[in-house]
């Protein structure tokens, strides 16, 4: 872990980065903001960990808990909303057993993320399954997609340690 973090810090010093970019790199590297990673960086930079958590809880992009192996991003933007995204999301949450008030299934297989608009509104409603954008999604298409996810080879979302 420390090697990866050292690399992140080097990059940050070279590019005159800021705390947010460090945290984005950590999130990208580990899939979420690991507590030990935050503590380590906080000591190295002599910046209190509370500063990191202040930022983490402000921005929607940061996660304090690990994400599932498969990340499904559902658009809740206006165009998708009027095209029925709410129903798609409800069935996603139900089919993938995502607990109430959470976004990741207990077995850490699936994360259902909601975002405000992915900018592909003319093919609304939009669902992104492991970075592949699917447009004009219907309940049927979604069910098929979920089925392939459940049966198919597990795609790794990011490198885990």
């Amino acid at each position: 872990m420390e090697d990866k973090l050292t690399a992140i810090l080097t990059r940050y010093r070279e590019n005159e980065g800021n705390l947010i970019s460090i945290m984005q790199d950590i999130e990208h590297e580990f899939g979420y903001l690991r507590e030990d990673a935050i503590n380590w960086v906080s000591e190295q930079l002599d910046v209190p960990a509370s500063k990191f958590y202040g930022i983490a809880t402000f921005y929607a992009q940061f996660h304090l808990k690990p994400k599932g192996k498969n990340v499904i991003t559902a658009c809740c933007g206006t165009a998708c909303h009027v095209k029925g995204s709410e129903r798609l999301i409800n069935s996603l949450v139900k089919e993938l057993n995502i607990p109430d008030g959470d976004d990741t299934s207990e077995d850490l297989k699936y994360t259902v993320e909601k975002v405000n608009c992915v900018g592909a509104c003319s093919i609304a409603p939009v669902i992104i399954v492991n970075k592949a954008v699917h447009g004009k999604v219907t309940p049927d298409k979604l069910m098929k997609e979920i089925k392939t996810l459940k049966e198919g080879p597990k795609k790794e979302y990011t490198d885990y340690i």
Binding site: I20, S21, Q24, G54, F58, Y59, A60, Q61
Partner: peptide, 22 residues
Amino acid sequence: LGAGAFVCGESTALMRSIEGRR
């Protein structure tokens, strides 16, 4: 890179965000 906060489109908030703050 923005980190997913609508209010950061507002000019003074956006500048704070570039500075690496809330």
